[in-house]
């Protein structure tokens, strides 16, 4: 036990080394004036900017708005993608017939769809959410279908020989079989939704959100705020990924072990 705590502690220190080094190099480069401070503000000023923006500058609100939009887009994508993915995966002919379409649109940059979605849904919030949802939906659809297609045949056969009906096989076996791959899809989808939402906030007339703050910082040449908002966006993305990863290891404990 003592040894474990020590190694966990050691791992914590090791993990902190990289970020601390980055800040140290950043500090030195800035202090020595190797890069003009107009392009690279000091890390202290950047952190200060995050602090003041969070405290009263509305950054908390922007963070929240971006998070909400991302989760809305993700939610729509998941609700529409998981059942359909299961259906497609369970039907080999259906899968083959739309495989190319899904692959094609999955490979199309979501940002290329912005103007189209603006025409269809207008300039409001929903256009942003819709385009992010569309991109995330394809990722979820593909992964769930893939998970279902690659379900272990022996397991389905085992359920059948035990007398499980088609519905029971679906609910008791197929659903769990595709869960690991579903989670891969969900995690990829939430990251993609965030990317699309942030870009959409920059270019599809948003009133708030981290993307809007980033573009405003660029226009006003507020470099500490620009750097600070980038870091905060990173925290949001990392946090979402970590959340899903934790959920995954808890819910899909057997993934990669069976």
């Amino acid at each position: 036990m003592g040894l474990q705590v020590k190694t966990a502690w050691q791992r914590g220190i090791l993990m902190a080394v990289g970020p601390l080094m980055l800040f140290a190099i950043w500090y030195v480069v800035n202090a020595q004036g190797w890069v003009t401070p107009r392009l690279l503000p000091s890390p202290v000023r950047t952190l200060q900017s995050i602090w003041t923006n969070m405290a009263g500058g509305g950054m908390g609100h922007d963070f929240w708005r971006t998070l909400v939009r991302t989760l809305q887009a993700f939610g729509i994508a998941a609700v529409a993608g998981v059942p359909l993915g299961i259906m497609i995966g369970a039907n080999a002919k259906l899968y083959r017939s739309i495989e190319f379409l899904v692959d094609f649109f999955r490979s199309t940059p979501a940002t290329a769809m912005f103007p189209l979605f603006m025409i269809i849904f207008g300039l409001g919030d929903f256009a942003k959410i819709a385009v992010a949802a569309f991109a995330a939906w394809l990722v979820i659809l593909f992964n769930v279908a893939y998970g279902v297609m690659n379900a272990r045949q022996t397991r389905l056969l085992a359920a059948r020989v035990m007398g499980a009906s088609r519905l029971r096989i679906f609910r008791d076996v197929l659903f769990y079989e595709c869960l690991p791959q579903t989670f891969v899809g969900l995690r990829t989808a939430v990251s993609l939704a965030l990317v699309v939402i942030v870009v959409a906030e920059m270019f599809i007339g948003a009133d708030d959100g981290l993307g809007k703050r980033i573009i405003d910082s660029q226009i006003t040449f507020d470099m500490p705020q620009l750097y600070g908002t980038i870091l905060v966006s990173g925290v949001l993305g990392y946090g979402l990924n970590l959340f899903f990863l934790t959920l995954e290891t808890r819910l899909v404990h057997w993934a990669g072990r069976s």
Partner: peptide, 29 residues
């Protein structure tokens, strides 16, 4: 009937504990 597969890894349900795997066919009944 009962059936025992060669590939036990792919025949058992890894999301259920061993005891729940044994319960499953009885639950189906």
């Amino acid at each position: 009937i009962g059936y025992v597969f060669q590939n036990y890894r792919e025949a058992l349900f890894p999301w259920q504990r061993a005891i729940d795997n044994i319960h499953y066919p009885l639950k189906l009944m």
